[in-house]
Amino acid sequence: MNHINNWILENPTLYSIIKYAMIVVFVLLIIQLLRRFLKKNISNSSARYKSQKGIEFIGYVLLVILSFSYFTGNIKDFTLAIGLFSAGIAFTLQELILSIAGSIYIFVVKVYKPGDRIEINGIKGDVIDVDSIYTTMMEIGQWVSSDNYSGRIVKLSNAFVFKGPIYNYSQDFPFIWDEFNLPIKYGSDIELAKSIVIEIASKSLSDFTANSKAQWKEIVNKYYVEDAQVEPTLAITLTDNWVQFNLRYIVNYKKRRITKHELNDSIRKAIESTNGKVTLASTTIELVKIPEIKVDVTK
């Protein structure tokens, strides 16, 4: 045994190769141990996969750096390799780093929180969870109309808070403006129609109007924004076919659909009770002249 040890020591090249092989084995062993550790401690499959791939990449870059430094022995080259290694880590784990930074940003700046309704990266929904990597949302819209849940739960990387706008429907001011059009037939009592629409809207939306006024004052004090009218407003437009009523009003962001239904139904009933003084219009075709038809019947 001593004879073998002496023989190895007397051959520097062989000694160097064996030493290098031990370093490689040690690094590969560390990589495998870290991969097993991540597999056991990270429950999210996507994060676990990315972390394991990141560890593999870092380990292989480290092997290249150690190999370069081992065979050159130049401290300047080693410093350069360390710099390249750091850049490799940042590049490989940039999405994971951005996600973690995004979670900190969401928490500190209070971009949104569980319970808020937001739209981010083209996805709209209610936030149901925010962790260190993902924001989990209950999706709204897509193949269902209005503000109904689609039933899909969406996980979105927190990194998206740095990549585009975030629309928050509920933060600071949990109200939104909504509107719809009513076609009133020409010849109807327009003043009566106006009073019906405004009266029903003011009565049905009184709670939303009162609550939104107080909160809008806080918005004006907090942000550089002009004061806004929160009472229902009615605008009239004359079209080729009918008198178009445009009703604009404020409503709680979670009650937009049911409120529009109640307003439409109440206005319909009120118009029907006018006994024809007010009539809803529909698309019609007016025949200006009936063409003459000549029929020649011969026996």
Score class of each variant (00 low, 15 high):
97 I>H: 12
127 V>S: 00
130 V>G: 00
67 S>W: 01
60 Y>G: 01
97 I>M: 14
132 S>C: 10
67 S>H: 06
115 G>R: 00
86 S>A: 15
127 V>Y: 03
112 Y>F: 14
92 T>A: 14
78 F>A: 14
108 V>Q: 09
99 S>H: 10
105 Y>D: 07
104 I>T: 13
68 F>D: 04
114 P>S: 03
113 K>Q: 10
130 V>C: 02
124 K>D: 02
117 R>A: 07
108 V>S: 08
136 T>K: 07
103 S>A: 15
128 I>W: 01
61 V>L: 06
82 I>V: 14
74 N>Y: 07
82 I>Q: 13
64 V>M: 08
95 E>H: 13
98 L>C: 12
68 F>E: 06
77 D>G: 14
69 S>T: 10
81 A>M: 11
78 F>E: 08
105 Y>C: 09
70 Y>N: 04
59 G>L: 03
129 D>H: 09
120 I>A: 00
116 D>L: 01
126 D>R: 04
113 K>D: 07
106 I>K: 06
120 I>Q: 00
67 S>P: 03
112 Y>H: 04
100 I>Q: 10
98 L>Q: 11
131 D>M: 07
94 Q>V: 15
100 I>W: 12
89 I>Y: 13
92 T>Q: 15
79 T>I: 15
89 I>D: 08
111 V>S: 05
72 T>E: 08
84 L>I: 13
128 I>F: 03
73 G>I: 11
67 S>E: 05
124 K>T: 08
96 L>N: 12
102 G>H: 09
127 V>E: 00
106 I>G: 04
120 I>T: 01
74 N>M: 08
133 I>L: 09
106 I>E: 06
67 S>R: 07
89 I>H: 09
100 I>V: 15
81 A>H: 03
113 K>C: 03
84 L>C: 11
84 L>V: 12
77 D>T: 13
84 L>F: 11
61 V>T: 11
113 K>S: 05
132 S>F: 13
94 Q>F: 14
112 Y>G: 00
131 D>H: 09
111 V>N: 05
122 G>V: 02
116 D>H: 06
125 G>M: 01
95 E>G: 13
74 N>I: 13
135 T>Q: 02
65 I>N: 08
112 Y>N: 01
84 L>T: 09
98 L>V: 09
113 K>T: 07
87 A>L: 15
113 K>N: 07
120 I>D: 00
94 Q>I: 15
116 D>V: 03
71 F>I: 06
79 T>P: 07
105 Y>S: 09
117 R>F: 06
85 F>N: 11
95 E>K: 15
70 Y>T: 03
69 S>N: 10
80 L>H: 07
121 N>Y: 06
124 K>G: 01
90 A>C: 13
115 G>F: 02
124 K>Y: 03
114 P>T: 02
74 N>A: 10
132 S>I: 13
62 L>K: 01
90 A>F: 15
119 E>S: 09
62 L>C: 05
81 A>G: 14
123 I>D: 00
108 V>W: 08
103 S>E: 05
113 K>V: 03
75 I>K: 13
